[in-house]
């Protein structure tokens, strides 16, 4: 995949649908999945520019998903986007290679800034 694209991983279907739609509207290629397993499968198949990862998923722990993603694609940029604020979970995520840690609900414009920052950092 040559285009810089976004994978939204979250079990809230409405949230995923809206965010993907908004990102597309602003010119970002994006898609969403609702589980950790699906996220790992998609990452194995495609190289996403940024993966927005919720920490509470129905099938797997977000931290575990992060580690699996980093194993498959060590350079991928994973932005943790969680509604369950936890400094220790955030620190653990950053230690395991997360690019950033954001708290829900993130302002859309702030999210776009983060995506720009990730894209500008280069591969």
């Amino acid at each position: 995949m040559s285009e810089f694209s976004i994978l939204v991983v979250d079990d809230e279907e409405e949230f995923v649908a809206t965010l993907v739609q908004r990102l597309r509207k602003r010119g970002w290629a994006s898609e969403g999945v609702l589980s950790g397993g699906a996220a790992i499968a998609r990452v194995a198949a495609s190289d996403f520019g940024v993966i927005l990862l919720d920490m509470r998923l129905p099938d797997m722990d977000g931290g575990q998903v992060l580690q699996e993603i980093k194993k498959i694609r060590p350079t991928s940029r994973v932005v943790i986007l969680t509604g369950h604020a936890s400094a220790s979970e955030g620190e653990e995520g950053i230690k395991n290679g997360a690019f950033d840690y954001l708290l829900k609900p993130v302002e859309f414009e702030t999210l776009l800034e983060k995506l720009e920052a990730a894209r500008n950092r280069g591969p």
Binding site: E12, E14, F15, T82, G83, H84, A85, S86, A87, L103, K104, P105
Partner: peptide, 16 residues
């Protein structure tokens, strides 16, 4: 942590 978690949860409830 509790504040942000509760806040996020309520906002999600309303937004969805």
């Amino acid at each position: 942590e509790a504040l942000y978690t509760v806040s996020a949860g309520i906002q999600s409830l309303i937004s969805n």
